[in-house]
Every structure is written in structure tokens, then in C-alpha cells.
Simulated scan of single mutants.
Amino acid sequence: MSDEHRPFYVLLGPDGAGKSSVMAEVAARLPGWRTLSTDHGLVGPGYDLVSALRRHVGEDVLPHLGTHYSVDFLASMLQTAVVHLKDELTRHADDVPLLMDSYYYKILAKCRLAGIRHNPMYTWWRSFPQPRAVVYVDVSPASAWRRSGNGTRLNPLEYFGERPEWLGFESYQTSLRKLMLEEVRDLPVTIIEEQPSAARAADAVLEVLAS
């Protein structure tokens, strides 16, 4: 089966939208589906390196961005996640529907917001197989800010400025949403408005996938 006919969908959304919780709900309630993510706890067995690289980005690279490490180095580290998702898609069985977390869309948007406006990697990423559809789980910056403990659980790739403050977070998340939706503008996109819980968001996602 060719890539364009693979049963392949992408779950997208801003920081704090609860995508990981939705992915877990989908995995539990749609046993015939496969979920794919690089988030902690959702990476499949045998891929400890993927989890370790993600952890090192947060613990080692981001705290020293602009001093020890450049934004180009950061983009190179983030690309490992993108390539992992692409490789897993290539190996994926054609007859099993797949829900993938964010794909390259969110990472590309975050790289652009970090100051890397143009990079040859972007052209390569955009040449990857495209999903049948994107399900965008939305959340307002205000709700996402509360879910982050009013900024206490944020990393530097989730806000503008030297420290997590509301205005920098709101501006970053607004820009992130714009860039992600711009990246998938030529694909079928269903936007799920903010839900009161991950379970309700999962219900909405399941309804879209079933249709």
C-alpha cells in the first residue's frame, strides 16, 4: 500500500491541550488502533534512546540555550524525534489505523519561534508522507497557563522571554497555534474546541476518527 493510502492521522494542539491524555484514552478505547508519540511514557519498548534524547533536550540543552548550545544545535536534537516518527510510520502495518502525536508540525513551528526561520531540514520534513487528516485539540492560553501551575511546569520552548510569565506565555502560544495551523492548511483539519477534561476531549477525538 502506498504512503498516501496509509490509515494515518495526526493529533495536534498547543502546549497544555492534553494530547498525551487523549492519546492514552484512544489507546485504551480503540484497541484496533496504534498510537505513536515521543512523549514520556508513550514511546514504545526498545526506544530508550528516543526518550533519553528528549530528556536531555529539556535537562541539558534548553537551560544552556544561547550559551553552551545554539538554536541550530537544538533543532538538530529535535530532528531526532521527527525522524523517529517517520521511521515508525515507514515500518507501520498498512492495515492498522495509526494516530500520531504532532508529527513534525509542532516541532517545526517551535523551531521557527526559536529563531530558525529557514532551515534545509524543513524542506525534508515537508516531503514526508502526509496524514489523511489532522485532529486539532484546542485550548485557550489562559486554561493552558492554569494547567501548567501558572507557569511553574513550563520549559523554555513554551513561552517568550527569560522566565515563564503570563504575557510571554500567551504571546508564544498564540503564535504557536498560528504556525501549526498554517503548516497543515492544505490538509483536512477538524478543530475540537476546548473541552472540560481529557476524557471529554478523547470522546470528541474518537467521534472524529470514527467518522
Rank of each mutant, 00 (worst) to 15 (best):
64 H>T: 04
65 L>F: 05
77 M>I: 04
101 D>A: 14
59 E>C: 01
104 Y>E: 01
56 H>A: 13
41 G>N: 06
61 V>G: 13
79 Q>H: 15
43 V>D: 07
93 A>Q: 12
58 G>F: 08
104 Y>W: 15
57 V>F: 09
96 V>M: 04
96 V>P: 05
56 H>C: 07
51 S>E: 15
105 Y>Q: 02
83 V>N: 00
59 E>D: 06
106 K>Q: 03
64 H>N: 12
70 S>F: 02
100 M>I: 04
98 L>D: 06
41 G>I: 08
102 S>D: 15
104 Y>N: 03
69 Y>N: 01
101 D>W: 02
74 L>R: 00
88 E>S: 09
51 S>L: 10
81 A>W: 00
103 Y>S: 04
87 D>C: 13
86 K>S: 09
44 G>I: 04
95 D>I: 09
86 K>L: 07
47 Y>T: 06
40 H>S: 12
56 H>L: 14
93 A>R: 14
99 L>K: 02
66 G>R: 06
102 S>T: 14
63 P>F: 05
100 M>E: 08
104 Y>A: 03
70 S>Q: 03
56 H>W: 13
40 H>N: 14
103 Y>T: 00
39 D>Y: 03
103 Y>E: 05
83 V>S: 09
89 L>I: 13
79 Q>A: 15
105 Y>A: 03
48 D>G: 15
69 Y>V: 05
76 S>V: 05
55 R>N: 13
106 K>A: 06
106 K>E: 14
61 V>Q: 07
52 A>Q: 10
60 D>H: 13
71 V>K: 13
49 L>H: 10
50 V>M: 09
51 S>F: 00
105 Y>K: 04
94 D>A: 14
101 D>H: 03
57 V>Q: 09
63 P>H: 11
81 A>R: 13
102 S>R: 15
77 M>Q: 09
103 Y>F: 15
53 L>F: 10
81 A>M: 10
104 Y>G: 01
94 D>K: 12
91 R>Y: 12
73 F>G: 08
69 Y>M: 00
80 T>V: 14
76 S>F: 07
56 H>N: 11
98 L>M: 15
77 M>V: 06
85 L>V: 06
83 V>Q: 12
66 G>W: 02
90 T>S: 15
89 L>P: 04
49 L>E: 14
42 L>H: 09
84 H>C: 00
81 A>E: 14
56 H>G: 13
70 S>K: 00
47 Y>W: 13
41 G>S: 00
73 F>A: 15
94 D>M: 11
91 R>K: 07
66 G>C: 04
62 L>S: 06
78 L>W: 02
69 Y>W: 11
65 L>D: 08
47 Y>I: 04
94 D>L: 10
47 Y>P: 08
86 K>E: 07
95 D>C: 11
49 L>Q: 08
93 A>W: 14
55 R>F: 07
72 D>F: 11
62 L>K: 12
91 R>Q: 15
79 Q>P: 02
60 D>I: 12
60 D>A: 07
38 T>E: 09
